[in-house]
Design a binder for these strands. Structure first.
Length: 259
DNA sequence: GCTACGTTTCCTGTTT
DNA sequence: CAAACAGGAAACGTAG
């Protein structure tokens, strides 16, 4: 496997995407698709910019950080660049959140280096962060990293609970919140009211499927999941307008001024 | 193994 | 006519 899967994804994001429901990237990635295709994610140094972005979102979600607080522009870099950032760089780039990001990426680098059985771990960038484990920087001789202690324990009990990544509505929200990574997929109709519209419904569905490792996701199916959100008041009904949804009272983190 | 949750998949009917 | 929208029902995968 020499092709980096997400490169294909990146190109899908920037090019027009057929309405077809073929298997765009997955087939290229894996010969003999078995449903598990994440070995690449074990090594952050090989991540594409998009993967870095995904990782960022996952850390943000996992720590309930207000996504609008994150200067995503500062992380428009690939995995190699990301891995060469020092603790100070993270602090400079993301302020207080930099600490969390640094810890997360450090652990991922570490895990990658020791490559604990990748298959078993089902590595996704979100899996590891455990606040009880602190590691020293691997690539940089950072002077005095506050709260980061050296620990030499092996990455054995890494299987940690996995807070099941993002939910659909969070995924949608994060696309909306990151215009630089949202090439016209979804657009705010009324920013203040939380009303938005799908511009490329099938493309969003493919992206969602990609995240869930499901190459047969379609807007039809995605929209069914969206409709279930009405009852939970994560979304409010907007009738008469096709492909338009609105965040409800139980959706958090989408407002411009939300702490 | 069992349960709960959040979808995913499928489907029939309605609306735009 | 082709997409979306509506929901019911049931299957699924994961976390606990």
């Amino acid at each position: 496997m020499s092709v980096t899967p997400s490169c294909i994804l990146d190109s899908q994001l920037t090019t027009t995407w057929g309405p077809s429901n073929s298997y765009p990237d997955v087939s290229t990635v894996v010969t003999g698709y078995t449903g598990r295709l994440w070995p690449r994610d074990s090594q952050p140094q090989f991540w594409t910019k998009f993967q870095v972005w995904e990782w960022l979102q996952q850390v943000v979600d996992m720590h309930q950080i207000d996504a609008s607080n994150i200067p995503f522009q500062n992380f428009d870099i690939d995995g190699h660049q990301l891995c060469s950032l020092s603790y100070q760089d993270f602090i400079r780039a993301a302020g207080s959140v930099g600490h969390i990001l640094f810890q997360s990426i450090t652990e991922l680098k570490w895990g990658g280096q020791y490559h604990v059985d990748v298959e078993q771990l089902d590595l996704k960038p979100e899996y590891i962060y455990d606040p009880s484990i602190h590691l020293a920087p691997v690539a940089s001789p950072t002077p005095s990293s506050p709260e980061i202690k050296r620990s030499c324990s092996r990455p054995h009990q890494v299987k940690k609970h996995n807070p099941r990544g993002t939910h659909l509505w969070e995924f949608i929200r994060d696309i909306l919140l990151n215009p630089e990574r949202n090439p016209g997929l979804i657009k705010w109709e009324d920013r203040a009211e939380g009303v938005f519209r799908f511009l490329k419904s099938e493309a969003v569905a493919q992206l969602w499927g990609k995240k869930k490792n499901n190459s047969s996701m379609t807007y039809e199916k995605l929209s069914r999941a969206m409709r279930y959100y009405y009852k939970r008041e994560i979304l409010e009904r907007v009738d008469g307008r096709r492909l338009v949804y609105k965040f409800g009272r139980n959706a958090r983190g989408w407002r411009e001024s939300e702490k």
